[in-house]
Structure formats: structure tokens, C-alpha cells
Simulated scan of single mutants.
Amino acid sequence: MKLRFLGKNSQVGDCPTLYATDRDTYLVQGWKIFANDLLMQLTLSQGETAVEVPTELCEHLGKDGLPSGKFKRLEGPLMALTPGGTYVVQGRAVTDPEPLAQMSTPDYESVVEVSKAAIIALLEEPRGADLQRRAQPAL
């Protein structure tokens, strides 16, 4: 897997980082989630994990030709906007040594892979069935 660095939001040390891949996916390097209340809200399939990243990290999507504005939807793979102003991103846990060797990932961080199509969908205005789901009262 070939990686293209899109950006990070710190000049010092390792921090959440965004990469584009040659597989029409993104690798999102972020903080491991240890908060039980947050973990209980997630439904993770086998082989998946979630990471927490600052919302500003997504501004680097513009370097891959995507709108770098705010997400218009909060649904898979972007699972939550936390009270602290961070996103929780869920995806396939990256364990392949080849891409991991191209990154510097400290013990308190992990890497998830998400499809470019899923990210693009989150940047689009909701329509059709999405708007109907929003209009229905929560139970």
C-alpha cells in the first residue's frame, strides 16, 4: 500500500495524521479511545477499531481534492463529535506492517482505514431517506 501524507495539526512530535492511499482509502492515525462511556456507544465489527482526532485534521482532505469544509453527516465511519470538539472515526484496524512502517505511531495511537467513498458521502448534504430519518422523532 502506498501512502501520501495529507497532513497533521501539530508541528511537535507524533499526533493524529491523515494519509491517502493508492486503494481509494484514507488512513486516519489518531488517539486510542479509553473512555468507557464513548466505547459503549460504538458497534465495532471484528477487525475494526476507532480513533479520536481533532476536527481540524479533516481540513487536510482538501489536499486530496475533496471539500475541506465541515462534515454534513455524523454516521459511519465518522461516529461522533465529542463534547471536547473531536471526531471519533471507526474503520478497519491497520495491522499490515508495510503501511505502519511508513508512519510513526506511538503506543497511545492507532490507525484505521476508511473508504474514500464513505468520507465523500459525509461531506454531501443529506437527501431522500437521510432527511426522512432525521425528521422521525427519536424513541
Rank of each mutant, 00 (worst) to 15 (best):
Asp22Thr: 02
Asp22Leu: 04
Asp22Tyr: 03
Arg23Cys: 10
Arg23Ser: 13
Asp24Ala: 12
Asp24Ile: 04
Thr25Met: 07
Tyr26Pro: 12
Leu27Tyr: 06
Val28His: 04
Gln29Met: 12
Gln29Cys: 04
Ala35Pro: 08
Ala35Trp: 00
Ala35Ser: 10
Asp37Glu: 08
Asp37Ile: 02
Leu39Tyr: 06
Gln41Val: 12
Leu42Ala: 12
Leu42Gly: 13
Thr43Gly: 09
Ser45Leu: 15
Ser45Val: 00
Gln46Pro: 06
Gly47Thr: 06
Glu48Pro: 05
Thr49Gly: 13
Thr49Met: 15
Thr49Asn: 15
Ala50Pro: 01
Ala50Ser: 07
Glu52Met: 13
Thr55His: 09
Thr55Asp: 12
Glu56Leu: 10
Cys58Leu: 12
Glu59Gln: 08
Leu61Thr: 09
Leu61Ser: 10
Gly62Asn: 03
Gly65Tyr: 01
Leu66Pro: 00
Pro67Arg: 11
Ser68His: 10
Ser68Lys: 04
Lys70Leu: 10
Lys70Ala: 11
Phe71Cys: 01
Lys72Pro: 00
Leu74Val: 11
Leu74Asp: 01
Gly76Asp: 07
Leu78Asn: 02
Leu81Trp: 02
Gly84Ile: 02
Val89Trp: 06
Val89Ser: 04
Gly91Asn: 04
Arg92Val: 02
Ala93Ser: 13
Ala93His: 12
Val94Asn: 14
Val94Asp: 14
Val94Phe: 11
Asp96Leu: 08
Asp96Glu: 15
Glu98Asp: 13
Glu98Met: 13
Pro99Glu: 09
Leu100Arg: 12
Ala101Gly: 05
Ala101Trp: 05
Ala101Ile: 08
Met103Leu: 13
Ser104Gln: 13
Ser104Lys: 13
Ser104Val: 04
